[in-house]
Design a protein around this nucleic acid. Sequence first.
DNA 1: CCCCAGGCTTTTC
DNA 2: GAAAAGCATGGG
Length: 310
Amino acid sequence: MHNIKINAVRLSLTDTLYSGQSFMWNYLYDNRNISAGILCDTPVLISTESTEEIEIICASSWMGEMPPEEFFPDYFSFDVDVRNAFPEKFTFRYPCVWEQLQKYFSLRILRQDPFEAMITFMCAQGIGMRIIRNQVSLLARTYGKRYDIMYRDRPLTLYGFPSPVLLAGCDPLELSICTNNNRTRARNIILASRAVAEGNVDFNALRDDNIPLEEVRRRLCELNGIGLKIADCIALFGLGRFDAFPVDTHVRQYLAEWFGSTAALRPLTPSTYLTLDAEARTIFNPALAGYAGHLLFHCWRKEVKKLRWF
DNA sequence: CCCCAGGCTTTTC
DNA sequence: GAAAAGCATGGG
């Protein structure tokens, strides 16, 4: 048993909380009312027993500096009003989309640990959500720090997300057990972890909002296995760059179907990607384009594609 | 055996 | 330069 301080905070919500970053909540533990995830290499429990309140229990030391009441609102980006992501004309130009979107306004994008965001999205190339979450879960269980805590008089085991140094020292063949048996992906993750561990990729520097998004992309795309889409995901979920608009297969689909984009009918080459990126900034408020896109992403997957897996 | 999944890299025109 | 093909793996 580790000796861990438990910090708890209750936050009020207007509706059910959806995950801002799809891998967050369920990859360690899940039943009806309790989900567990990783927060800055620390396990976090989320309890949603009512639709108005969630309880967060964080077994962490890093929060010693910052009271949970201050940290979590920032983590859940409660400072962002998602409706500002949509210009006024959106409501009458796309009334059907607007109507379907209503129940997704409680969805939050998390200001997540950038390294975790980087690795989890590197696990997300051309495979389904279910497999992606299995990979992240395996990474945590195999290489993450173990925490044994008591929750409501019940023992509960959680695993933190492994550090850059730890993943940097992994053997590719061994790590590939956690990457869907894909050795190329395992090798890329090791190299990227090394780049972070050695400071060649400095997330603290990239956090600076004065750095243009193009520059952030350029730096991240220098790494093997990271292209425009994953770079944008790291920016959006890991660097709090809510203007970053990742375009994946689902986003491409709804841009064509809902917004009549002809470019979205073409294969998603880098050229097409940048065209769609520019188009999105004319549909949404550019400063929050990625935030808007993420709501639509979940809305499309669930309402239209009828997908169960987040 | 087909197609799809929160793409990226290399080759070819 | 940009489009096309190649790559890698499990699930439906």
